[in-house]
Design a protein around this nucleic acid. Sequence first.
DNA 1: TATTTTTCTTAATCTAGGTTAAGTGCTAGC
DNA 2: GCTAGCACTTAACCTAGATTAAGAAAAATA
Lengths: 191, 191
Amino acid sequence: MSLILQNIAKHITLSPEEQRHFLSKTEVHHFKVKSILLHSGQICTHSYFVNSGTLRSFNINDNIVEHVLNFACEGYWIGDMYSLISQKPGNLFIEVLEDAEVVLLSKENQELLYTEIPKLERFFRILTENSLVANQERLMDNLSLSAEERFEKFCKKYPTLIQKVPQKQIASYIGVTPEFFSKMKSRLLRK
Amino acid sequence: MSLILQNIAKHITLSPEEQRHFLSKTEVHHFKVKSILLHSGQICTHSYFVNSGTLRSFNINDNIVEHVLNFACEGYWIGDMYSLISQKPGNLFIEVLEDAEVVLLSKENQELLYTEIPKLERFFRILTENSLVANQERLMDNLSLSAEERFEKFCKKYPTLIQKVPQKQIASYIGVTPEFFSKMKSRLLRK
DNA sequence: TATTTTTCTTAATCTAGGTTAAGTGCTAGC
DNA sequence: GCTAGCACTTAACCTAGATTAAGAAAAATA
């Protein structure tokens, strides 16, 4: 069974018929490292599910500084939720960090599926709830933990990512500069 | 029409029948200032909708420092999403900041309603999506804006709250100490 | 009204993390 | 196999915001 159907099966049960129908509404694409799936200022038209490889979403503020919102590796969904639901231009980029196979689900098909297979509304509700919980925890961590503690949590949560993505992007995710991250890392190693 | 039905009507349409049924699954309670609706360590059993008054959710870390996750005034929902969906003990408190009339919706009734009135699944999906977007923006703001800029955004987003809640709690929400907040405020006034 | 508690302010001092800058080491194209 | 461009490191110096402490103002309670 495909990864995306396994992902869905964690929360709801689809009949073989429904599974086939769901897949028929998606497209699989292959992207090379450094491909940009979504540019800041564009309207986000799809949700992305990662079959293999790694993506990230990030924004760039006035000072030309990047901030990583999310990483997505195998089995994760990614997109620009703000732009996707408002259908207004967003301020996120979505970029490929490692050659990736990605399942694309367009907003129209997603909405269509909600009415054709109402259970999918439940699935995406649960998915969104889980994202919200993760986000709230990250927000509270940013308010109350030191950079070192945030890094430790990151390592536990995404052990595989550390070898895969440039460390300056991990620095950005936990909210410090690459220079400080480097200093902190060598401090930790000396222990 | 009650505030909570108006809130629902922003996203889905319920028949009078369905409206009555929905309300029959909720309870209205009145709470005095300083009441605690949920303690850290408890399992969250309800979603709360504020008819009037003001609530906040916050956690307390090891150092006995409070961090405000959310404020909820008239027309807002609040709860401990982590605890509510996992049914495990959470680490949030929910406290009344101004005498409040609150609509309580138990988790069981919420799930029941999902099956009885599937449209409600859509409603709560949309609600959660909007929370997620707001949270992501706040997270990015914390990573990229100064305390002053975060305060300005807060003032625009919650203009009524500034008079209503102690300023040390606004400080906590934007992620600074009360002392620094006070300094910053007088700096802004001098301009 | 007096008293207690809480919130807010101010100021001195401190520090986690930022900035700037220079140098080292990869690795991807050519 | 060279070279350009990233990614990473190190170090000196800087700053936004934290900490500590003490007092003033406001609000709750008696």
